[in-house]
Design a protein around this nucleic acid. Structure first.
Length: 239
DNA sequence: TCATTAAATTGTT
DNA sequence: AACAATTTAATGA
């Protein structure tokens, strides 16, 4: 799967609609002045499947949020084994680590399907960080939760049982704090999940059905519903 | 709003 | 990887 070259996001940026702004969780927490500033500087862009949101080495210009769609975060696909670090469902905001250090991006973000992405310009990000306590609280919480995610991911990668890997990956995608936009219904096809977990679609299909039998999820057309998040986190293959 | 058709997704081999 | 079955989305009366 080769990424489709495309113009940088900033050249396709448009102003967000009211409904799109309403879906941004941290906006509501800001003081009125800060909230107005954020609203005015946020830009939106729509992308097709396979496009890149940011590339390794590019200067960091935005703090990104996924409004709708599905992304994956990975290392350079050219050099060495391609590693998908994590899937990114709607409601996620990411890149703050890079922005904080004013470094270039350290990973590629690619859309798995047609997606709508919001961007908060780096300058506004630092303004808010400098004076808004609620904003800091959100970012801090975000960092803390994600740290837990990566630790869990280290364990998941060592597992070789496909069913278990799918279960753990799903549990990560349904993380209620990091990804409030997901709710209990995750819109993801089995094909997309395969790309994310690194399994064939057939194997994902098989894994999902055993998870369904175990009562942890309900498979739906074009997505799935989580019935037992804790169970997914703990899932181990029954012998 | 309903019926028809195309496209996407899932289930099976 | 290919195929059939199923579900959704799009189209036009």
């Amino acid at each position: 799967m080769s990424p489709i070259p495309s113009r940088p996001l900033r050249e396709r940026a448009r102003t967000p609609g009211a409904a799109e702004l309403a879906g941004i969780p941290w906006l509501a927490w800001l003081e009125p002045d800060d909230q107005a500033m954020a609203r005015n500087s946020i830009v939106m862009a729509s992308t097709g499947p396979g496009e890149q949101i940011c590339r390794i080495g590019r200067p960091a210009t935005y703090w990104f949020g996924l409004v709708d769609g599905l992304l994956k975060m990975s290392n350079e696909p050219g050099a060495g084994a391609p590693i998908t670090f994590t899937g990114v469902p709607p409601g996620a905001w990411f890149g703050e680590g890079t922005l904080l250090k004013r470094e270039p991006y350290r990973y590629n973000i690619e859309t798995l399907r047609k997606s709508t992405v919001a961007g908060l310009p780096v300058d506004t990000f630092h303004d808010l960080l400098a004076r808004s306590i609620p904003f800091n609280r959100f970012v801090l919480n975000q960092l803390n939760e994600r740290l837990g995610q990566f630790i869990a991911a280290r364990e998941t990668d060592r597992l070789n049982d496909p069913d278990t890997r799918v279960a753990r990956n799903l549990a990560a995608l349904f993380h209620p704090v990091l990804y409030p936009g997901v709710g209990s219904l995750l819109r993801i096809t089995q094909q997309e999940l395969g790309y994310l977990v690194g399994l064939s679609r057939q194997r994902v299909n098989e894994a999902l059905r055993s998870l369904q039998v175990a009562g942890l999820i309900a498979i739906e057309y074009g997505g799935l519903r989580v019935l037992d998040l804790e169970g997914l986190r703990r899932y181990e293959r029954p012998d």
